[in-house]
Nucleic acid binder design. Structure first.
Length: 829
RNA sequence: GCCGGAGUGGCGGAACUGGCAUACGCGAUCGACUCAAAAUCGAUUGCCCUUGCGGGCUUGGGGGUUCGAAUCCCCCCUCCGGCACCA
């Protein structure tokens, strides 16, 4: 008998799947399409091809593949495609360093991913493969851009934007983390530039509302997106500055505290600042302050325990609710990007305003009573952010602030000094990048016609080959003079191409649609195909994309649906986020030298071991620490299954048992059914693969324990064979090669063509149960009892136990609790 | 600061609606096989007391509800993730 040789087995089945194109599925109307089967779209986030795949990839695709196999065997027509998110900064930065064109490095990496996906045995429909950097793909990225442009959802404007000095490009708001560039960690600075935006804010409400329509998304991902969108309801209230004849609207969530507004603050970037102070004594100081703030980085300005700073303007505005004149300030704690860039300051009920008031000696006024009566009317306990009765608020005094809220807003509205308003934290998505390795933005600038979209029939606007990838503050594409110079599609005059490229998140915001019709040369996808396959039934990926990618893709889907190209509002009905694998408790990184190369493990133990291990480490949604010993443990388990197979093949008849038999044989068959039941339930219950696999381990262990006594007896041998084939069938989603091989040898046929096994309910229950007997809630004995025994029978058995009697000794039983089939608890005093 | 998630053996983790805590795996110890080692197979393995039988304790800490709590409620501690001057 030979040992477990994964290489041989894995090569064999990979060849079968490749030659027979096992995992390819047809669209409606195409040959091979089966209208009887319900569809299921199982999708893992596409990889960014940089170097070799790492264990994070292995886990993501092992998890997704297990789900795909499970669905197939439940009768679904499963579409399970693969592609590469192949535009992006790392390839370009590498090019700057080494001179190697991004295309070359990227395509080499793609080859490595392709090879490894095959070696891992992932069940991919290769006929739908795509890479976002190919003109065949980005032609349609450009087409979508133009569709959005026509609808007014893509626009160009000058705005203060986040600029990374190292990568020499603007960044989306979402790509700035703690004031630093998400990619390289350099502190970003603000610059005022003309850039392209997508109007994501227009969809803010729908992005929020449609969480309701999702089937199953992790709660924390929804929460993160909700916080990111940051919807606040409140009111816009207008404060007037008579001296300069200007109205200053503010956004507030607390119109109920209007009577407590004692000063007024503008953001340093506020456009009217100049006009307010021009020619006044405050002019110089204000200008100095604004300049100083302007030089500071976002992280400096947002620092945690930063002291409040600001400068008085020497002007005042009128509080519309009481006619009071309150002084104006400029201060950097007010942000131009949020609300109107101006606030009414209520130091009595807002901690930031309170701090500012303390520093500048401004009055603090309580207008809402605190909950603590001791300090309710005092200045003690301020600032007080909570609710209570109103004081010092004219005719609203005595009312609860919540109730007065609506009244105040209504009153302001009738006076023309305010209205209900909603504000969002979310900004429009800045999509232009001053970089080379991305899809060119398909517009042309003409002296006469202005911004002119490139006509559809001229797409793609191909990315030209260049030599120098280093950014010079503008896109490297600007140096490709021959490419830049073009003619206006509208008037034919000399014109210049847009030299910015699109953020790579644009590419990945619609790739799941291209898979559905990947070879289509006439359209990005066929509407009928999209209607059939969408939405993605199960999406799998890392939590790191909880906000960016997932929100952009949702936005795209809604915009494309509005444009009539799609029939769904949400792209991903179910989302599963897998946890990160660490090594020695730390995130893997090349600099720490604690990376794990999946290739090495596949080489040494086989793909089945590596895949099963990442699914066994712990619940897949949680992280886990990679250990070589753990890998060996899984390899040992698969080897045991293999040996069981080889032995059973020799020693048993291929005939299936006529019945479950009796004794050990029956127990083993029952165990197999228990494993089927447990594996199936845990699979469905949030993809608890670790316990699915442990159930199969238990089955294999049991078979191992009893096999020698069973060989030779007709029912016994059949039971071993059945248990082993069942284990193979259940482990197949994780270890597809070994699962296929063992199943073929012992049961005949291809395991992936077999329906997922069903547990026989009759074999899940046994005649006897272990009755747990407690005295005062403490375990005192275990007794084998008939499963169907009535309560008094169980009580009798419990009382008869010697061990129990010892603890009852002379005491009065005051209560008897009997849970049939489970336990008896005797309460004594 | 605010919002999530999590604390269970030496380690990763299991325990479906409150009912045998520690499944499965790793590690460790002992034994079989072997000239020997590896591999494999078998046994033991939460902690404390006890030669043994047996007993006591144990799910981050404290309190509560209950015949019975890892699980439910209240308070506290620690770790991880997200957001953070968002008016």
């Amino acid at each position: 008998m030979s040992g477990y040789e994964p290489k041989e087995i894995e090569r064999k089945w990979q060849r079968v799947w490749a030659e027979e194109k096992t995992w390819e599925v047809a669209n409606p109307g195409q040959p091979g399409y089966d209208a009887e089967k319900p569809k299921s779209y199982v999708l893992e986030m596409l990889p960014y091809p940089s170097g070799e795949p790492h264990v994070g990839h292995l886990k993501c695709y092992a998890v997704g593949d297990a789900i795909a196999h499970f669905r197939r065997r439940h009768g679904f027509e499963v579409i399970h495609p693969m592609g590469y998110d192949s535009f992006g900064l790392p390839a370009e930065n590498n090019a700057i360093k080494t001179g190697e064109p991004p295309r070359v490095a990227t395509e080499r990496s793609i080859e490595s991913f392709q090879r490894q996906f095959r070696e891992w045995g992932i069940s991919i429909d290769w006929s739908r493969e795509l890479a976002t950097h190919t003109p065949e793909y980005y032609r349609w990225t450009q087409w979508i851009f133009l569709q959005l442009f026509e609808k007014g959802l893509a626009y160009r404007t000058e705005a203060p934007v986040q600029w990374c000095p190292k990568d020499a490009t603007v960044l989306a708001n979402e790509q700035v983390v703690d004031g630093r560039c998400e990619r390289c960690g350099t502190e970003v600075i603000q610059r005022k530039l003309e850039q392209w935006f997508f109007r994501t804010t227009e969809y803010a409400d729908r992005l929020l509302a449609d969480f309701e329509s999702l089937e199953s998304w992790p709660e924390h991902v929804i929460t993160m997106q909700r916080n990111w969108i940051g919807r606040s309801e409140g009111a816009e209230v207008v404060f007037r500055c008579e001296e300069v004849d200007l109205d200053f609207p503010v956004f507030t969530t607390r119109p109920d505290t209007l009577f407590g507004a004692t000063f007024f603050v503008l953001a340093p970037e506020h456009p009217e600042l100049e006009r307010l102070v021009a020619g006044t004594p405050a002019e110089e100081e204000v200008r100095e302050y604004v300049n100083r703030v302007g030089r500071e980085s976002a992280s400096e300005r947002g620092a945690e325990d930063r002291e409040k700073t600001g400068v008085p303007l020497g002007r005042s505005v009128v509080n519309p609710v009481n006619g009071e004149e309150i002084p104006m300030f400029v201060a950097d704690y007010v942000l131009m990007e949020y609300g109107t860039g101006a606030i009414m300051a209520v130091p009595g009920h807002d901690s930031r305003d309170y701090e500012f008031a303390q520093k500048f000696g401004l009055p603090v006024q309580r207008v809402i009573e605190g909950s603590d009566p001791e300090v309710a009317r005092d200045d003690e306990g301020l600032p007080y952010p909570g609710d209570g009765g109103m004081v010092g608020s004219g005719r609203f005094d005595g009312k609860n602030n919540r109730e007065a809220y609506e009244e105040i807003v209504a009153w302001l509205e009738s006076e023309g000094r305010g209205k209900p308003a909603v504000n969002y934290r979310l900004r429009d998505w800045l999509v232009s990048r001053q970089r080379y390795w991305g899809a060119p933005i398909p517009v042309v600038y003409c002296e006469e016609c202005g911004i002119v979209p490139v006509p559809d029939e001229q797409l793609p606007v191909e990315l030209p080959e260049i030599e120098d990838y280093a950014p010079q503050g503008k896109s490297p594409l600007a140096a490709a003079e021959e490419w830049v110079a073009t003619e206006c599609p509208r008037c034919g005059a000399a014109a210049r191409r847009e030299t910015d490229t699109m953020d790579t998140f644009v590419d990945s915001s619609w790739y799941f649609l291209r898979y559905l019709d990947a070879q289509n040369g006439k359209a990005p996808w066929d509407r009928e195909a999209a209607d059939f396959w969408m939405p993605v039934d199960q999406y799998i990926g890392g939590v790191e994309h909880a906000i960016l990618h997932l929100m952009y893709a949702r936005f795209f889907t809604k915009a494309l649906a509005d444009l009539g190209h799609l029939g769904v509002q949400e792209p991903f009905a179910n989302l599963f986020t897998q946890g990160m694998i660490t090594r020695d408790g730390a995130k893997m990184s090349k600099s720490k030298g604690n990376t794990v190369s999946p290739g090495d493990y596949v080489e040494r133990y086989g793909a089945d071991t590596a895949r099963t291990y990442v699914c066994f480490m712990g619940p897949p949604e949680r992280g886990g620490d990679w250990t070589d010993e753990g890998v060996e443990g899984v390899n040992r388990f698969l080897s045991r299954l293999w040996r069981l197979c080889e032995e059973a093949e020799q020693k048993t008849d291929p005939v299936r048992p006529s019945g479950p038999g009796e004794g050990e044989a029956r127990a083993l068959v029952a165990k197999a059914h228990w494993a089927i039941d447990k594996a199936t339930r845990d699979f469905q219950r949030g993809f608890q693969f670790n316990t699915v696999i442990s159930a199969v381990m238990e089955l294999v262990n049991d078979a191992y324990r009893v096999k020698d006594g069973l060989y030779g007896t007709p029912e016994g041998g059949a039971a071993v064979r059945f248990a082993t084939a069942t284990a193979a069938s259940l482990i197949f989603p994780f270890a597809p090669h070994l699962g296929s091989e063992v199943y073929e040898r012992l049961a005949g046929g291809r395991v992936w063509e077999q329906p997922w096994p069903e547990a026989d309910p009759a074999l899940l229950v046994s005649d006897t149960v272990t009755l747990v007997v407690q005295v005062n809630g403490k375990l005192r004995d275990r007794i084998e009892a008939p499963a169907e025994a009535p309560k008094d029978e169980l009580l009798r058995l419990a009382r008869e136990s010697e061990k129990v009697a010892k603890h009852l000794d002379g005491q009065e039983i005051v209560k008897e609790i009997v849970v049939p089939g489970k336990l008896v608890n005797l309460v004594v005093r």
